[in-house]
Amino acid sequence: METLERILAAHPFFSGMEERYIQLLVGCASNVRFDAGQYIFRAEEEANLFYLIRQGKVALEAFGPERGPIVILTLEQGDVLGWSWLIPPHRYKFDARVVEFTRAIALDGTCLRKKSEENHDLGYEFMKRFSQLMARALQATRLQLLNVYELNP
């Protein structure tokens, strides 16, 4: 049986993070699982958690009454789901629907925000990782926006 600490350390999001920080974080983490079709969160809900996906597939969706659900992105093993916990007003912007049975580590945002305020070095480590994540997501979104496969987008 793997300890939560080892699972955290093994996730790409935490790669290279010092062990002392991981130990600090374990208290904010818990193992979770979701079945296909379940919603991990929905838009407008209070965003207290984010997820390190270990297995499965989750679709980030928006819902238009006349269009139904629109998938923006799918997330898989190694991905991180949710950053609204980091940014006020801490509410999710999209729905997270489970496409395939998913196992993840949930991290409690309130707990992390508190620890980060107490320990800015930890907070900085988090900000570094999330800024990379957000930049990559922004770049990927721009590429999607370019609609490169259309001849006259």
Partner: peptide, 21 residues
């Protein structure tokens, strides 16, 4: 694929996301 209906069970996103993994 760049965009998909909710019935699509595959990956939505850019193909370059696969490269690091």
């Amino acid at each position: 694929v760049d965009r998909a209906p909710a019935t699509w069970r595959g990956t939505v996103g850019v193909v370059t996301n696969f490269i690091p993994r």
